[in-house]
Nucleic acid binder design. Sequence first.
DNA 1: GATGAATGAGTTTTCATTCAT
DNA 2: CATGAATGAAAACTCATTCAT
Lengths: 196, 196, 196, 196
Amino acid sequence: MKTEQDRGEARCNQVLDAAADCFRQRGFHGASMSELAKAAGMSVGHIYHYFENKEAIIAAIVERDVAEILALLDSLHDEEDILQALIREAGNNLEEATCGSDDALQLEVLAEATRNPKVLAMVRDGDRLARNRLAETITKGRAMRGLAPLADLEARSEIIIALFEGLTCRNVRNPGVPLDAIATVLRSTLQNLLET
Amino acid sequence: MKTEQDRGEARCNQVLDAAADCFRQRGFHGASMSELAKAAGMSVGHIYHYFENKEAIIAAIVERDVAEILALLDSLHDEEDILQALIREAGNNLEEATCGSDDALQLEVLAEATRNPKVLAMVRDGDRLARNRLAETITKGRAMRGLAPLADLEARSEIIIALFEGLTCRNVRNPGVPLDAIATVLRSTLQNLLET
Amino acid sequence: MKTEQDRGEARCNQVLDAAADCFRQRGFHGASMSELAKAAGMSVGHIYHYFENKEAIIAAIVERDVAEILALLDSLHDEEDILQALIREAGNNLEEATCGSDDALQLEVLAEATRNPKVLAMVRDGDRLARNRLAETITKGRAMRGLAPLADLEARSEIIIALFEGLTCRNVRNPGVPLDAIATVLRSTLQNLLET
Amino acid sequence: MKTEQDRGEARCNQVLDAAADCFRQRGFHGASMSELAKAAGMSVGHIYHYFENKEAIIAAIVERDVAEILALLDSLHDEEDILQALIREAGNNLEEATCGSDDALQLEVLAEATRNPKVLAMVRDGDRLARNRLAETITKGRAMRGLAPLADLEARSEIIIALFEGLTCRNVRNPGVPLDAIATVLRSTLQNLLET
DNA sequence: GATGAATGAGTTTTCATTCAT
DNA sequence: CATGAATGAAAACTCATTCAT
């Protein structure tokens, strides 16, 4: 019984992994169910045992995506040096961002949120959690350095997240900018936002 | 003769205006040619007199979109106070960004660039022009204030653009953040980037 | 212009004729759109220029069917001898009734009405007109023979129609009953209902 | 052993009861095997232990339906007053006939018979038995009243059955006609057919 | 006996594109 | 220049049936 449920869950994830790949490469609406099926190694019909329809798959992918961001933020929370960790993460994103990458999926999600209310709601709910988490992290980081709490904490968080999301966009428009070239500027900018 | 050409151009723009609307609301792949035709007030078949196929319309829209960004930057170039102008522009974008807005189109373009090489090339070409223009503008602005040229000009431009594009994303994920709440932080961040 | 509209209407009827055939032979839900298309001599996609979906075709067929019954009743209205005309019509139906016949379509419609509210409404609306028409016809027929108006006109009409519809059913369950064998009984029954 | 066979039969009927419900509400081709399974409270696969395929279930349902009519006629056979019993039965049917009712199933069967030769054969075989039974019953009834045997017995039976089946159709097209409104007419019609 | 995961052909429907008028 | 009828391939989704467990 336990095994069967596990098996079902594994099959589900098999679909989601395949779907994430397909969506990254062809977009939510460019990827067909039969592509998904082929990529997931199962029949088209069988996917419908696990997901009610294509939109449900999209929703699950978005949820995964949101969870990933939250996990990233949670990992930051326990870093010794938050500033440094943030810059490192920004750097991690600065690689070729086209079709295969996660940036592609992020942008797809954002574009979809623009027209799909269900996706929009998920994105916004996730973002609320994320920015609260970042704010806590910042407060904690500042406390660890003996800095006073920030009155404009929300605004600073917003700008910091904007910087991160912006770098995702930059990765499409102007990829391969050497990290070290902008690391210094990024560091000074973040320092300005976090440590003053 | 002249008039005829003008007429043709006007018809073209009629299509592009309609297309921009449709694409904003439904996405490149969600909008059908007959929707475009209806919105443009002409027959489906006739659109093919002006554009070879749907992709050509997408390309034209992307080009327009890129040109719009360039025009914005050009307008900044002649501003008295660059810093203030940048913040003002950032504020202009901070409104509900869902389906009807320009942010929606920007994200659609970026997502499409991720999988469509032709679109990617256009986006990158446009971005190259844009960031050069911004760099010039910054240099000019600094000169007007008697500040020295920047050694890390490119990196700073990159970060500034990232900030802007990031705010576009934020508009989807967390809309309605009051401008005045973040204007101060934005100002200080830009000041840090432009005036030091 | 006139011609074009006519052409459209002709195309529509082309679809409806083909559909009626297909539905008779395979049922509303047994006949596929591609069968319809093949029978109508046009592409599947093009049928959707004329009908929003399959249900709309079904509805149009039902409407036709209802109109046919009404037309039959109207033709009876102007007969010299109504009783004789009714018996003649009953006889016309007493032929092999399986797949190709109109009885098949009638039963299909009735079965569909049982679960499809839109069809049910059409069937009932049509029936209301039909039974009123029959009642008028009977009254006229009796007047022509100098008989008094009937107090139980509605009930008698109902029974007469039931007889007719019943013979349609009988045609499936026990076809090929020789008309002359039942004509006498039918005549006496109708006489009992119409002339006393 | 006996118990096991009974158990199997019970399971069979469990399926048939569920199937009858589903077919009534959605039609033979509108009801899916998984709907049947859910309604029968067993797995899809298990239904195939009892029935070779869906058509076999349809056939069994048709057989049941036919048997039901035969049973009704048999019950009439032992009534004191056949005329009265017939009218009573006609009345029993005169209730709202849409999706849930038995009329719905009857019409479904008849429509199916129109295209499915196996069903047609069953329907006709059943009908032969039924109309012979009715003829016997009528003869017996007349004998009990001291009336002479009928030369046109078959034709009269046919018309009587047509009346009954027709009232089933009327129940769809014009439901809710008060029984007492037509009982008198029905009685006089049947009297005319049975007692003269 | 009993399950339900798995299949793949089939369903309705949409859509970019063409072309005769 | 302008139309929209026409196509056919492809999309999302369904379903009877099978079979390993």
